[in-house]
């Protein structure tokens, strides 16, 4: 009986939690499309989520491309397919690695900050202050982050891809002696616009996931410093796992 009770309680809690996440997203989407955007706040958040994440995305992009160049060259040379290095690096980056790793990087840098900032606003009653001023906190705090993340994630992934392809070029062409024509020439043959769109769709959905989860965790943080730190940690962990799970589903659907 006890086991059934425990399972039942866990089930109710899970359903309630999932419902809260769903309602939060619905509310956010409702306020995104039903009221004028706070353009100033969106630009501020684009600067915070996008511009300030550029360096870390460029760095990780370059080194990821260099590793792909090395590993790809090693694997392809086993059967004399070094000429395929360019398409291998580009396809891996554009379809998969670029959107995923850039999203994970931005989650660590900006997502955690979003959760803690909104969490601190909650525990210092700043969110309540919006409400008693008859202002909707979703419009001021959540919607700008969602719009900014959805706009910035594809751009950051594109930067990651470009630097990654350049990193692969440095390793494959400059260090390992592949000709530049082969590296770039084969790329244009095997890469289509659908691959690029595939990466863009992924990035857009990752932007939505990160803004949604991080804002939710901050918005409903528990009280005290411990509550904010718990919310921040949970936000990063849930986002990271969701990005990878969602990545699998979206890849399998479009395969």
């Amino acid at each position: 009986m006890n086991l059934i009770r425990i399972i039942g309680r866990a089930g109710v809690r899970l359903t309630r939690n999932l419902g809260s996440y769903g309602l939060f997203l619905m509310n956010t989407l409702f306020w995104t499309f039903s009221s004028p955007l706070k353009t100033g706040r969106v630009i501020e958040q684009m600067s915070f989520i996008g511009v300030k994440s550029t360096l870390i995305v460029l760095l990780t992009g370059a080194f990821t491309g260099m590793v792909l160049g090395l590993q790809g060259f090693y694997a392809l040379s086993k059967f004399g397919g070094e000429a395929m290095l360019g398409p291998t690096v580009a396809l891996s980056l554009i379809r998969e690695i670029g959107p995923v790793i850039s999203a994970l990087m931005v989650t660590g840098r900006a997502g955690s900050a979003l959760a803690s900032e909104i969490g601190i606003m909650r525990i210092t009653e700043q969110i309540d202050a919006y409400e008693v001023m008859a202002l909707n906190p979703y419009r001021y705090l959540v919607v700008p982050n969602l719009v900014a993340a959805v706009l910035c994630f594809p751009l950051l992934a594109a930067l990651f891809d470009v630097l990654g392809i350049w990193g692969g070029y440095v390793v494959g062409v400059k260090l390992l002696g592949l000709s530049p024509g082969t590296y770039f020439g084969e790329m244009t043959v095997y890469l289509s616009s659908s691959d690029v769109f595939h990466g863009i769709y992924k990035s857009l959905s990752f932007g939505l996931i990160v803004a949604w989860i991080c804002c939710f965790k901050g918005f409903f943080t528990e009280y005290g410093a411990k509550g904010v730190s718990k919310a921040t940690t949970q936000a990063v962990v849930i986002c990271s796992v969701l990005i990878l799970v969602w990545d699998y589903f979206i890849t399998s659907v479009s395969f």
């Binding site: 601190i120 606003m121 009653e125 700043q126 309540d128 202050a129 008693v132 001023m133 008859a134 202002l135």
Partner: peptide, 28 residues
């Protein structure tokens, strides 16, 4: 409309961290 009639002084002030005193008071 009901909340427009309210004013609330919170225990810790609940001023918006990212705004100056002037912008906080001008906000509503």
């Amino acid at each position: 409309e009901m909340r427009k009639r309210f004013g609330f002084l919170f225990q810790g002030g609940a001023l918006f961290d990212s705004l100056t005193v002037y912008d906080n008071v001008a906000f509503p």
